[in-house]
Design a protein around this nucleic acid. Structure first.
Lengths: 178, 178
DNA sequence: ACCGATATATATCGAACTGGAATATATTGG
DNA sequence: CCAATATATTCCAGTTCGATATATATCGGT
């Protein structure tokens, strides 16, 4: 699964520009489980166009730079199906936050609390993105499954952090009183 | 946060060889939130040694290839603390599984079920790793926090999948009966 | 007894990807 | 009226991945 497959998969749902794909990986539906940089998306789209997996339609826009709208072809759908025909690779989760927590002995307590609050804010921001997608009427079973999974996992993280922060605050308050 | 910092952080907990660091990122404590390849770990350790951030001790072993045990220096600890002095970057989560679920229209139902069962098995394997760490007596607050967070999030994923698989099976059974 | 698989241990390298800078313009907010 | 933000693409240096190579021990199966 490389960026090519990612773009192909996205374009099988709707036509889009490279910019829109990237934006949806940051915000929209995909924000909590997919990422790719412009430096990989644009070359992938160009190559897919050369191979006939997608078509390009250049749209002139007054003022703004021209945009290239990509759309998947039948050959592209066939290639996508072949890519999906293997079991998905194991999830990859990288968390500098958890790494920092594991090394908390090297840190003052207040910085640990700030990191935990940042983590909680990040998780909540992702939950907000999902809530927005729901409001904007993404009610097909596929989207609902993905959003439901995201909500379940993100909410569990928020709950864990909230409980731990509460315990930490209670502790520091107790120590201050002594 | 690059592989250098990762190695430095690991070595601040215990001395180790490159092989052991990689193994712990795959299994041990770190399995569910950190990854790095040999191709990045070994060069990072060599460079850190050149810079005096770690020391190397070559241990001959009868039969097995010599191993190079790395240990952090005071300069290394100081550098690590500087690295930890910035807020951690946002978590990165990549899931081919969720991508596949979003494109489930391109897939037959049985393959979707297989993917879901694989995902559940993967999550359970991570939970097992954490349970093993606990049994082997990692009871310091830092480890407990990280393991607790992992358990909370992984369990939420398992529960969501279990419920959805049950609903899916009930549905297909109903359709078969009609 | 022997073979294959797995585990220990390190090194190397091309391909892939990231993250940031560069470019150009319109709109929005203070 | 200026700064910031948004649209839209391109390029590149540096980082990392994933696979391969090398060498040996051990364990299980036949």
């Amino acid at each position: 699964m490389n960026v090519r497959d990612l773009c192909l998969g996205y374009l099988s749902l709707r036509e889009a520009t490279g910019y829109e794909i990237k934006k949806d990986f940051e915000e929209g539906m995909f924000c909590h489980f997919m990422e790719a940089s412009y430096g990989s998306i644009y070359p992938a789209l160009s190559q897919l166009a050369l191979e006939g997996m997608v078509t390009v339609r250049e749209e002139e826009q007054s003022g703004k730079p021209d945009k290239k709208v990509y759309a998947i072809t039948d050959a592209g759908v066939a290639m996508l199906k072949r890519s999906l025909n293997v079991l998905p690779a194991r999830d990859k989760y990288k968390s500098e936050f958890l790494f920092m927590m594991l090394l908390q002995n090297h840190l003052p307590v207040h910085q640990r609390i700030i990191a935990m609050e940042k983590q909680m804010a990040d998780l909540k921001a992702d939950l907000m993105s999902i809530a927005e997608c729901k409001q904007q009427g993404m009610t097909d079973p596929a989207s609902e499954f993905v959003m439901g999974y995201g909500e379940a996992v993100l909410t569990a993280g928020v709950t864990f952090l909230k409980d731990n922060l509460a315990a930490l605050h209670a502790n520091t308050a107790k120590q201050a009183a002594e």
